[in-house]
């Protein structure tokens, strides 16, 4: 047992119970969990996110330090690896795109095995696969939820829903993304719990967001497929939130919804203070977002300052006689 994940799990359960209890108490508490906290969370998120990115941007990039993962640009008869070792802005854009959209570096994990006399290579794809599954499911879920915040619903949302519901099973139709989000988060969690190496490096701050997201996915799935909450009322409420005319709709919405909303609020507010900022940070990583052209184009360091050096004159003063004796040219005879 590990205090890191137990405490995270406990925290998420307690948060869930608080929201549930609040929703059951009605009145003021519904306003608190349904209006006040979501607004506060979004505010914290926006200000926190901007603040964090501004804070990063405030620190300069004094040196051009890309990790070069392929052949450099050199003579024209040597084929350059234009994406893994970009020397142009376009190359960098493609490298970043592949990094952000396909998690290219994670994909680099390979393993060798010797079979008889031959070497065989295989991809170690589990981490990559779980990560892709998790992030893309999350994205799909977020986009689907825009339905609750737009009127009329923009064209791409039904489109995504159609793709997501391609299995055409169940009523309401199962969305794959909900399930894969839950599965992805669970697998990433299991990885942390079960692999000793990963377990050793994991902190409460690694478990907490996973439990929180599992909680969000779980409550979401429960509402959609099992307890069947009143979607019309929820939309009335969420539209009220976005149009800045918040209100709690008449009639019951269900405690689960408040738990769901509270979890989301916590997650959103938590992002700027946590490792979840990697979503913004990946764009600013100097080993990835710079071209490897520092010998061709001078990179400027804004805080470059003069330093004490040992000049040639000082050097010659030290050794002049010996230099003359050895027949080495000197400045001052």
């Amino acid at each position: 047992m590990n205090v890191n994940y137990l405490s995270s799990l406990a925290a998420v359960i307690i948060l869930g119970l608080i929201a549930y209890a609040g929703a059951q108490s009605g009145g003021f508490y519904q306003v608190l969990f349904g209006i006040f906290i979501p607004y506060l969370a979004v505010l914290v998120f926006i200000l926190g996110f901007i603040n964090r990115v501004m804070d990063w941007a405030k620190s300069p990039v004094p040196f051009r330090i890309p990790s070069t993962c392929g052949q450099q640009q050199s003579m024209e008869w040597i084929k350059q690896s234009k994406i893994d070792n970009p020397s142009t802005f376009i190359g960098v854009v493609i490298r970043m795109f592949l990094e952000i959209v396909l998690f290219r570096s994670l994909f680099r994990n390979s393993r060798v095995e010797i079979r008889g006399d031959r070497l065989s290579y295989k991809w170690v794809i589990w981490l990559w696969l779980f990560a892709i599954m998790f992030h893309y499911s999350f994205l799909a879920v977020v986009i689907r939820h825009l339905r609750f915040f737009t009127e009329p619903v923009p064209f791409f949302i039904p489109l995504i829903e159609k793709v997501d519901g391609i299995l055409q099973v169940g009523l309401p139709i199962y969305y794959i993304s909900g399930l894969t989000l839950l599965a992805g988060a669970t697998l990433l969690l299991l990885r942390r719990v079960l692999i000793p190496k990963i377990n050793y490096i994991s902190q409460a701050a690694d478990y907490f967001p996973l439990f929180l997201i599992i909680g969000i996915a779980f409550t979401g799935i429960m509402m959609r497929y099992f307890t069947k909450v009143d979607v019309v009322r929820i939309k009335e409420m969420t539209m009220g939130l976005v149009t800045l005319h918040p209100g709690i709709p008449e009639g019951p919405i269900g405690g689960l919804f408040y738990v769901h909303l509270f979890f989301v609020s916590i997650l959103v507010a938590y992002i700027p203070f946590s490792k979840l900022m990697h979503m913004g940070g990946v764009f600013l990583s100097p080993t990835r977002n710079l071209a490897n052209n520092s010998r061709a184009k001078r990179h400027i360091n804004p805080w470059n300052y003069p330093v004490k050096v040992h000049t040639y004159e000082e050097y010659e003063d030290d050794f002049r006689e010996k230099m003359i004796e050895a027949g080495l040219p000197v400045e001052k005879e």
Partner: peptide, 9 residues
Amino acid sequence: KFFKDNSDP
């Protein structure tokens, strides 16, 4: 676990 499970020589 790393020494044990990773069969990549």
